[in-house]
Design a protein around this nucleic acid. Structure first.
Length: 425
RNA sequence: GUGGGAGUAGCUCAACCGGCAGAGCACCGGACUGUGGCUCCGGAUGUUGCGGGUUCGAUUCCCGUCUCCCACCCCA
């Protein structure tokens, strides 16, 4: 038997209804903040991710689906292509390519699949879905202002509330600009040298490979050491410090609860200044539901004009998982099940079904060969509110037997009044 | 990529020391030929993930492999 490949999966009803609910809510909320949708290709030149996300990140160095495309001529070497591992690089590429800044398109959102070749785990798949938004534009558009950061965070808090996600937690930090990050990294490396040997095995390795990750260590014995390590906030210059302070003040004005987490670091190279993460308790080790931050130098890194920006990516798989644990299914049951009965009654039934559907009702239809008992069983199983019997008697008289399956009440209704009757009750 | 656990009917899971592969739910038919849910009777479930090995005999023991789950690395 051929099965879905490792790390991919089929989304089946009724779960798909939850996905549609999430996406519809996202579109509605984002629209209120004047974001518009962008759809970028699912694969891009490998170089885009190498330069945009960072050569040294795990994503680029070992988690991408990359292949060499066929050259146009037999002698020509094909270009290296990659299934997108995230969507920000693609959006910024499109921003540059179509000069979106000049067209005033500064607020964009996307919903779609991304691909990373990781070991699958709950809430972590090789084809996974992300919802994200980016505010990007020339500095003159205000895209570098603290109010943009606060506005996006407030939008996310509103979205999670609207989705009915309870117990989310927002942590923010500032990781500084490019120069400040380098200075902090050096200081951290130096501070770790004498103490690393007394830390856990993971930290000993991180101390040289990725000092920022040491701050993320959860081993209790290491905490006293980590407390004494330099903090990023000590390495922020006046401008970054003020930016961060402004963001915090604006969040308070907007009524968005948050915690400053000086240890919050982000994995992708392009992040600057504000970094944030929303977490949710019920997701195990994969507790981050969305994360993001500012990326003021990304456009230049990709050969574009200066265009400060801020954005986030939300794991839709995990969002749905969190919702499933707290909400029952939301599929709307059919309003009526139509049961034709007797040779030729299908003809009347299909026309009737069409008319009722056009009136906005959800209608399912049986077949004239079914015994009435089977039709009742099916209607009950589907959870239909009513069963409408289209037998030979009904077709002849133009009046139909309509039974409320919950109350058992049955009435005879003329064809012209069926839609109104079903809508009213 | 690393470590551990698990894969048996559509679903949830049993099967003792290696001896005919089972139950509940769901499904189909009937009791009831124009009235569901409840009840009763009957029925079909299957490459025991896949491939190999040991054995008279393997769901069971061994090896390999695939997938899922948990954790690590990393990250949304």
């Amino acid at each position: 038997m051929i099965k879905a490949v490792r790390g991919t999966r089929d989304l089946l009803p009724p779960e798909t209804a939850l996905w549609n609910f999430v996406e519809a809510t996202v579109r509605e909320v984002f629209r209120a903040y004047n974001f518009q949708e962008i759809r970028t290709p699912i694969f891009e030149e490998t170089q885009l991710f190498a330069r945009g996300v960072g050569e040294e990140t795990d994503i680029v160095s070992k988690e991408m689906y990359t292949w060499e495309d066929r050259g146009r001529a037999a002698s020509e070497k094909g270009q290296s292509l990659t299934l997108r591992p995230e969507n920000t690089a693609g959006v910024v590429r499109a921003y540059i390519e179509h000069k979106l800044g000049d067209r005033g398109l500064n607020k964009l959102y996307y919903i779609g699949p991304q691909f990373r070749r990781e070991r699958p785990q709950k809430g972590r798949y090789r084809q996974f879905y992300q919802i994200g938004a980016e505010v990007i534009g020339p500095a003159s558009s205000g895209s570098d202002k603290p109010v943009r950061d606060a506005e996006i965070l407030e939008m996310l808090a509103t979205l999670l509330d609207r989705l009915g996600i309870r117990n989310w937690n927002l942590e923010i930090n500032s990781v500084g600009n490019a120069q400040e990050r380098v200075a902090f990294n050096d200081a951290l490396r130096k501070a770790l040298e004498p103490v690393a040997a007394s830390m856990c095995a993971d930290c000993q390795r991180r101390a040289t490979t990725n000092p920022l990750r040491v701050l993320d260590c959860k081993v209790p014995e290491d905490q006293p050491i980590i407390e004494k390590l330099p903090r990023i906030t000590d390495y922020l210059q006046e401008e970054s410090t003020r930016h961060f302070a402004d963001v915090r003040a604006l969040l308070e004005s907007a009524g968005v609860p948050f915690q400053v987490n000086p240890r919050l670091v982000r994995g992708l190279d392009y992040y600057t200044r504000t970094a944030f993460e929303f977490t949710h308790g019920a997701l195990g080790a994969q507790n981050a539901i969305l994360g993001g931050g500012r990326y003021d130098g990304l456009s230049e890194a990709l050969g574009g004009p200066p265009a400060p920006g801020i954005g986030f990516a939300m794991g839709e798989d995990r969002l749905v998982l969190a919702l499933q644990e707290q909400t029952p299914n939301i599929v709307k049951a059919p309003d009526a099940y139509i049961a034709p009965m007797g040779a030729g009654t299908n003809q009347a039934a299909i026309g009737l079904a069409k008319a009722l559907r056009q009136a906005g009702l959800v209608i399912d239809l049986g077949d004239e060969s079914f015994r009435l008992k089977k039709s009742f069983e099916t209607a009950s199983k589907l959870g239909a509110r009513f069963i409408l019997i289209v037998g030979e008697n009904e077709v002849r008289s133009g009046e139909f037997a309509l039974k409320n399956l919950a109350t058992g009440e049955q009435t005879t209704v003329p064809r012209a009044e069926l839609a109104a009757k079903l809508q009213a009750s």
